[in-house]
């Protein structure tokens, strides 16, 4: 078994090196831009800003005041793309390269069983993937924290933060690896395996983004307020874009039936139409972790399922 791990490391050390180098670059970028961000925060420019969702403006010119979070979003995008990158460049060739060259026959004719051949390389790849993706998610969290959930920073529900941080990044990377590994075993050519992996991991990544957007797995809550007084600010909640008026029977109606700000005009209009309250639907900030754990369970479960399928197919394919 030690020998198979030696071979696995000998074959994966280049990929591991590239991954580590990419991470070091990411850390360097994070350190540079984060310190710039902290300087901006300490300059006192943002002291008058509320944390709410509205833009913070400069007191003198009235222009919007924002932290430079673009580079942070790039890191988030990279984390979101991680399952695709790892699946295509690490998972697909993991067994696929040997299958294409026929070298698994040479390895298996040496003192290695098919089980050892698979476990050694998959375990090594999974360990490195976990470490690299965990660190990438950690770097994002460290960089994001000072700017988190501020009007001039990055809210928790921004794609980059919601899908590019936390445990789901690790689960997604492992899913990419498992999908690539299975497709590498099934396809006879590495290139075909890579293309299939790109398709599968890409589609699933987009599908999960869509479930976030549609609030499919984490339904929003309904917040109700009387129409007479200004409603409490939405704060860090992620609006579902659905808001309006409620009748006494509980029917939800379009806000355009009474398109007025809080005040007498609105009150009169509401009374005339029989509305008793206003509502909006949104996910509270605490739902960040609900999204995270649901994604982690879905991706981790799929990764486990694909790994089991690979093990079962190993006997027939190798």
């Amino acid at each position: 078994m030690k020998g198979s791990f030696w071979l696995a490391w000998r074959q994966q050390r280049v990929s591991a090196g590239i991954g580590a180098a990419a991470l070091v670059v990411a850390v360097a970028f994070a350190a540079y831009y984060r310190s710039g961000m902290l300087d901006a925060l300490h300059s006192g420019l943002f002291d008058h800003c509320a944390t709410g969702p509205l833009y913070c403006t400069r007191s003198d010119t009235g222009l919007p005041l924002l932290l430079d979070v673009e580079p942070l979003k790039y890191l988030g995008a990279l984390n979101i793309a991680l399952p695709v990158v790892i699946g295509v460049f690490w998972g697909a060739p993991l067994l696929g390269r040997d299958r294409e060259l026929g070298t698994h026959r040479m390895v298996l004719a040496q003192g290695v069983s098919p089980g050892q051949w698979f476990i050694s390389r998959f375990a090594l790849a999974a360990a490195i993937t976990t470490i690299l993706s965990g660190l990438a998610a950690g770097v994002f969290a460290w960089w994001w924290r000072p700017a988190a959930d501020r009007s001039y920073g990055l809210f928790w529900y921004d794609n980059a933060a919601l899908s590019g941080s936390g445990p789901r990044v690790v689960a997604a990377a492992l899913f990419g690896l498992a999908a690539g590994t299975l497709l590498g075993l099934l396809a006879r050519r590495v290139l075909a395996a890579m293309a299939l992996t790109l398709l599968v991991t890409g589609v699933l990544t987009l599908l999960l983004e869509w479930t976030h957007w549609a609030r499919l797995l984490v339904p929003p809550r309904t917040y109700v307020s009387a129409g007479s007084i200004p409603k409490p600010p939405m704060g860090e909640k992620w609006s579902a874009g659905d808001y309006g008026l409620i009748t006494a029977t509980g029917r939800h109606d379009d806000v355009l039936n009474c398109p007025y700000p809080s005040g007498t005009q609105l009150k009169e209009c509401m009374a005339a139409h029989g509305y008793v309250a206003r509502f909006y639907e949104a996910n509270p900030a605490g739902d960040y972790w609900t999204f995270q754990w649901i994604d982690t369970a879905v991706l981790g479960g799929l990764a486990a399922l694909l790994t089991v399928a690979t093990v079962l197919l190993l006997r027939r394919r190798v």
């Binding site: 074959q11 060259l101 026929g102 070298t103 026959r105 040479m106 004719a109 040496q110 003192g111 290695v112 069983s113």
Partner: peptide, 17 residues
């Protein structure tokens, strides 16, 4: 594992890395 330790096979395509 007993057979693997005692038998060597060189296949026709002689695959090597």
């Amino acid at each position: 594992s007993e057979a693997r330790a005692r038998v060597a096979l060189l296949t026709q395509d002689k695959p090597l890395y």
